[in-house]
Each structure stands twice: as structure tokens, then as C-alpha cells.
Amino acid sequence: MKTGPFILALLLGLLWTAPAWAVNPDEMLADPVLEKRAREISKGLRCLVCQNQSIDDSDADLAKDLRIIVRNRLKAGDSDGAVVDYVVARYGDFVLLKPPFKGTTLVLWLGPAVIGGLGLWAMIAFLRRHSGQGGGQGGGAQAAIAKAASRPRPPPLTDDEKKKLRKLLKEDGP
């Protein structure tokens, strides 16, 4: 069996496929400017049935209804903000895929920065302490040498001490 024509047929078949859009052609507005605004607004609104899809992506019934409502409001002359407010009034902030910046969401927005800042502060404090003092527990060989060099030199050994030392070393020997 020759596979050539078969593969060619398969490849040609690909020409007939098209991406599956959630937005149906009959929903689209005739005015391309309004339609573009509608698409942008839809991308920011959550489909409450599928939750992590926008209504622009979702095939759910409710998403379709909301897309139509968005378009109807735009046709009625609403601004983008007014359209979003209209939907938020019914479904709450949860419909916004990007949560708004306000009192109740401060922790959400600023929390990561605060925690990151604290971490950075702790890290800098840690590094400062360990490199500034030198040595410590495991400050590295270089730090140990630096520390030893900076220490005041002890007075030289007296003759008595030298004798004692020699005796001790001898005792230790074989």
C-alpha cells in the first residue's frame, strides 16, 4: 500500500480545520470597535461555572449570556467601566479575573511584597553579621586568618616557660 497519497490527504484535511472559538459569530457586534472592546472586557470576566476561564474562553451557557449582556450594554452606550460594574454588582468581585486593589484585598496584593521584603531584610542581616564579625561558626578560612592576624600578639615566652614546654613535649613522645 502506498502511504504517500494517504498522508497527503491527511495534510490537506488540516486545511479544513479552524480554531474552535467560544465566541459564536452570531454574538459578535457588527461594529468592529465595539466588538474589540467587548472582547477585551470579556477576557477580564470570570465564567462562574468553570471558574478559571474567562467568559471569552468559555463555552458555558452562563458565559454566553454574560457575553451577550456585555455587548448589549456596550451597544446601549455604556463605558467599559460601567459594563464591568454592571456584572460586578450581580456577581461580586469574584467575577473579575484580576482582583481590584482595595481595603479587603490589601493583604493579597501587598502580602507577597511584605514577605519578600522581610526575607530580604533577614538575609542581609544574616550575611552582614557573619561577614562583618568574621569567623563565628564557620566564617570560612579567610575570615579565620584575618581574625588571627588582627589579634594582638602575645608576649614572647620566658626561659622558664620554654623549659616547661620542652619537658611536656618530651613526656608526650615515645
Binding site: V49, D61, L62, D65, R90, G92
Partner: peptide, 13 residues
């Protein structure tokens, strides 16, 4: 029948 009032009530499921 078209669910418009339902949406005004915030119905989603």
C-alpha cells in the same frame, strides 16, 4: 426562559 432575571439575581448554578 432567557435567564435574564436570574442573572440580575446573581444566579450562576
Amino acid at each position: 426562559p432567557r435567564g435574564r432575571v436570574g442573572i440580575d439575581w446573581g444566579v450562576y448554578g
